[in-house]
Design a protein around this nucleic acid. Structure first.
Length: 216
DNA sequence: CTCCCGATAT
DNA sequence: ATATCAGGAG
C-alpha cells in the first residue's frame, strides 16, 4: 500500500500528464448528464457521445422520453448495448422525475441512487460534475489504476476503493482526482496494453515493475 | 454470482 | 477470436 505522500506524488504526476482531465460525456444540463452516464455502463464515452448527439436533439425533456414507445427508445440507443435495460430505466427515471420530483433532479447522492439505472458510481459522477459536490466515482479505470498502483488493495470492492481515496485525498481535490485517475487509466494505464515502458510512475508501481520483469 | 449487449481494440 | 468499455439489478 502506498503512503499518503506517495499517492500525492502519483496524482500530481497524473495531473502533469493530463492537465485537462475532465468529463468527456457531452451534456448541457444535469438531466442530460444523468442520461449520458446511465447509458455509459459497459460502453465507451465515444460511442455514448455519438448516440447522445442525436438523442438529445430528439429528447429535450423527461416528458419527451415518455411520449414515444419503448421500442422506439430502444432503437434510438441500440448501438450502446444493454439497450433493453437502459431504455426501461430511462423511462422509469423520467417518470419518477416528473411525478415524484417535480421535474427537478435532486442534488443528493443517495437520493439519486433511488432512480433505476443510477447506482453509486453514476450518482457520484452527477453530483460531482453537474453540481460541484465533492465525490469520487469509482469506475473501471479508477479501480484498475488504484489497484495497479497499490493505492488500495487488490481484493478491495469498488466501495472500499472509493473510501480509501476519500481518506487519502483532500476533499476539495476529489473532483479533479477522479478525472485524473480516469484519464490516466483510459489513455496510459490501459487495461489491455498499459504503457509501463514510458510510465513516469514505474518506480513506485509494484504491478508495473512486475509486468516489465515478466515481459508482458 | 449472473445477466444484460453492441462496438471497438487487441 | 477474445477482452474491454465512465455499471446496475436481481
Amino acid at each position: 500500500m502506498l503512503t499518503k505522500a506517495q499517492i500525492r506524488h502519483c496524482l500530481d504526476t497524473m495531473g502533469e500528464m493530463f492537465p485537462d482531465a475532465h468529463c468527456e460525456l457531452n451534456h448541457s444540463n444535469p438531466f442530460e448528464l444523468v442520461i449520458a452516464v446511465a447509458l455509459s455502463a459497459q460502453c465507451t464515452d465515444g460511442l455514448v457521445n455519438k448516440v447522445t448527439k442525436s438523442l438529445f436533439e430528439k429528447y429535450k425533456k423527461p416528458e419527451d422520453y415518455l411520449a414515444v414507445s419503448l421500442e422506439e427508445l430502444q432503437q434510438d440507443i441500440r448501438s450502446i448495448g444493454l439497450y433493453r435495460n437502459k431504455a426501461k430505466n430511462i423511462r422509469k427515471l423520467c417518470e419518477m422525475l416528473i411525478y415524484e420530483y417535480g421535474g427537478v433532479l435532486p442534488q443528493d447522492r443517495d437520493e439519486l441512487t433511488k432512480f433505476p439505472g443510477v447506482g453509486r458510481k453514476t450518482a457520484n459522477v452527477v453530483v460531482s460534475v453537474a453540481f460541484g459536490i465533492p465525490a469520487i466515482a469509482v469506475d473501471t479505470h479508477v479501480e484498475r489504476v488504484s489497484k495497479r498502483l497499490a493505492i488500495c488493495r487488490w481484493k478491495d470492492s469498488v466501495l472500499e476503493v472509493e473510501k480509501t481515496l476519500m481518506k487519502k485525498v483532500p476533499r476539495d481535490e476529489w473532483g479533479v482526482t477522479h478525472h485524473r485517475l480516469i484519464f490516466f487509466g483510459r489513455y496510459h494505464c490501459k487495461a489491455q496494453s498499459p504503457q509501463c515502458e514510458v510510465c513516469p510512475l514505474l518506480d513506485v508501481c509494484r504491478e508495473g515493475k512486475k509486468r516489465m520483469k515478466d515481459k508482458v
